[in-house]
Simulated scan of single mutants.
Amino acid sequence: MTTTSEPTRKLRTELPAGKAGLRGAVASEWTKLMSVRSTWACLVSAIVIMAIYCAYYGTIVLIQNEENAADASSQPIGNAPQSAVIVVQFVAIVWAMQSITSEYSTGTIRNTLQWVPNRFTVLMAKVLVVSVTTFVVGTLLGLMGALVSWPLFGGYGIVNATDVIVDSVLVGANLALLSIMAIGAGAALRKAAGALAIVFVFLVVLPVLLQPTGNPNADDVLQKVNQYLPGYAGMNFMRGIDDYYPAYVGFLVVAGWSLAVLFIGYRRLRSRDA
């Protein structure tokens, strides 16, 4: 008796529709972000740094006003967390950067690119997850910092609930934009140390090098260059300063820097093997 075997079923190798798209990539990046210890270490560090800096800021405002009672002046308590961004931003940058540099250091970037071959989708998923998370965390940190500094202002703090919320949202927005810059730098350089060094140069080193020299003509040029760097522009739009341009232009300057670095990172990610 002869038997005929059924035709062998063709193995399905394709992922179900949508699984390799942006939605699936975002879900994967969220899982990765929340499952590594460095995320929680950065979160705890940001909370501690924000609290200490804002406590220090409020205390200094109180001391200065008491020592110069004739020229005493009050200021919004939201100034404290906004000033703290100069330090907290590096925690946010490390947090964002490790979302891609850690994959290169461990080799898991190969798995990521196998699951989601489209490199633009991979990068956009990281940007969406990290920037939105950073915005939410940054806003909450801003609120916390304002509350910590409030009693330490000793009556020299201006408290307005709406202004505090707006100031905190601006802190979150600034940190979110910087996190996008960090992802771009990480994608471009692959190494955490190199990417952090580049971002540090733009946020800290260049503003220091562009300080006034005493030469009026040179100082004017240096000031114009400085005001279009991301650190200076970020403080402008958070504080609503419009000495050189409207506050919203400061936001656009930081966004422009972040998108430019992200574009460079994408080009490098697309042109090189994992």
Rank of each mutant, 00 (worst) to 15 (best):
V199F: 05
Q211L: 15
Y232G: 01
N215D: 15
V208M: 15
P207S: 12
P246K: 09
V199A: 09
P246G: 09
Y248H: 10
Q211C: 02
P216S: 09
A218V: 14
Q223Y: 04
Y232W: 09
P212K: 11
Y245A: 03
G240I: 15
M235Q: 13
A218F: 03
G231L: 04
D242Y: 02
Y228P: 00
L209N: 11
Y228R: 09
Q223E: 12
V205A: 14
R239T: 13
Q223N: 12
P230C: 06
P216Q: 10
D243A: 15
Y245T: 02
N226I: 00
V205T: 14
N226F: 01
P230F: 09
L229H: 04
A247K: 11
P207M: 12
D220S: 12
V201K: 01
T213A: 07
M235P: 00
Y248C: 02
L203R: 02
Y245P: 05
V204C: 08
I198V: 15
V249A: 11
V201D: 01
K224C: 00
D243C: 03
V208P: 01
I198M: 10
K224A: 09
I241E: 10
L229I: 06
L209Q: 10
L203H: 00
A233F: 07
R239W: 13
L229D: 05
D242A: 15
V208E: 09
L229F: 06
R239E: 13
Y244I: 07
A247W: 15
Y228A: 07
L203T: 05
N226S: 07
P216N: 07
M235I: 12
Q211I: 06
F200V: 11
A233S: 13
L206Q: 05
N226P: 00
Y228W: 13
V199E: 11
V205N: 06
V199D: 07
P230Q: 08
Q227S: 03
N236A: 15
Y228T: 10
G250Q: 06
L203F: 02
V205Y: 06
A218Q: 09
I198A: 12
R239I: 11
Q211N: 10
D243N: 14
L229M: 10
V225C: 00
P207H: 12
G250K: 06
A218C: 00
Y244C: 02
L203W: 01
A233H: 07
Y244G: 02
G240L: 15
L252K: 03
L229T: 06
F251D: 05
Y232I: 08
Q211M: 15
L210K: 08
V225H: 00
D242L: 03
F251K: 03
D243Q: 14
V204R: 04
Y244K: 11
Y245S: 04
V205H: 05
F200G: 08
V208D: 02
G234S: 07
D219T: 09
Y248A: 11
V201I: 15
D220Y: 04
L206Y: 08
Y228V: 15
G231H: 07
Q227K: 05
G214P: 06
N215T: 11
I198R: 00
L209E: 10
G240M: 14
G231F: 04
L210P: 08
F237V: 08
L252Y: 04
N217L: 13
L209C: 13
N215P: 03
Y244N: 13
V208L: 14
G250L: 05
G214Y: 03
F200E: 07
I241P: 00
F237G: 03
L252I: 09
Y248R: 05
